[in-house]
């Protein structure tokens, strides 16, 4: 099944028709008597199969941007299209992994993943995903019996059950220790390749963005906007100590320190 999907995706990627197009003119937060412009003219598109990261200082509106794409926030000026359809609310064409695993503690691991699907979701699909994230032998465990890394793997499996075209990741590894984070980053790349999913990752970890992405959007705050787009062309798996990698990191740090001030 996933093989067929993968080849379909590859064709789509070859055409380079944007799967996601975002034209977000303005997003404003209102609090009592004052309003604050949070996002200002964010425009970009994602071709199918691409992995794009959004990095920026905390409070720059990157999570808000992700929530708009997820359809959790629809109060903005502009339009977001996924696979040609206007986003009016949440939809199964988009999977979301939040910063916290947000598992349901009263469901065993397998139930948590199966819950995301519908009546037609096959048990084999759930099992396949759990083995893909390396949790085949934890299917019957309660979430309280999982480590932070394991819980986030379950959340990833849950987000993939419905074969989303776009996976939205909101600092999914932010709460993990360095070793677990590095391992999850490597695995995430392989999982997304296998599932043929386009992904948008929001993070404040520059290395994470550079390791995973084809493109990095660097944001500046007040109001949140895209300061620069950086293409990452080096081969994967990427080495943090590679000269090109270090240069890109320095470039992004430079952008963030000037625009952030």
């Amino acid at each position: 099944m996933s093989v067929a999907r993968l080849s379909g995706k590859t064709e789509a990627a070859a055409e380079r028709a944007p799967l996601v197009s975002i034209v977000l003119e303005r997003k404003t937060f209102f609090a009592r008597d004052r309003s604050q412009l949070v996002l200002d003219r964010i425009e970009f598109s994602l071709p199918a199969g691409e992995f794009v990261s959004v990095v920026g200082p905390s409070g720059c509106g990157k999570t808000t941007l992700l929530r708009c794409i997820a359809g959790l926030d629809t109060d903005y000026e502009g339009s977001i299209h996924v696979a040609g359809r206007l986003v009016r609310g949440p939809g199964l064409d988009r999977g979301v992994v939040f910063q916290e695993p947000r598992l349901f503690p009263w469901m065993a691991v397998e139930e948590n993943v199966a819950f995301a699907g519908d009546r037609n979701t096959q048990r084999s699909r759930v099992k396949e995903l759990l083995s893909l994230v390396g949790l085949s032998n934890a299917e019957q465990r309660w979430p309280k019996q999982l480590s932070g890394g394991m819980a986030q793997r379950v959340a990833l499996a849950r987000a993939l059950v419905n074969l989303p075209q776009l996976l939205l990741l909101d600092e999914p590894f932010g709460a993990l220790d360095n070793f677990t984070r590095a391992r999850m980053q490597a695995e995430l790349h392989q999982i997304l390749q296998r599932e043929g999913v386009t992904a948008l990752l929001v993070t404040h970890d520059i290395d994470e963005a550079l390791i995973l992405s084809d493109r990095v959007l660097v944001m500046a705050s007040d109001p949140g906007r895209i300061a620069r787009t950086i293409e990452v062309k080096t081969d994967r798996p990427r080495d943090r100590n590679d000269v090109a990698f270090i240069a890109l990191r320095a470039e992004i740090e430079g952008i963030l320190s000037t625009k952030d001030g």
Binding site: L135, R183, Q190
Partner: peptide, 13 residues
């Protein structure tokens, strides 16, 4: 590599 590294996975498990 195309295959998820099983060893690392087992360590977490």
């Amino acid at each position: 590599t195309d295959v998820i590294s099983i060893e690392t996975v087992t360590v977490d498990s």
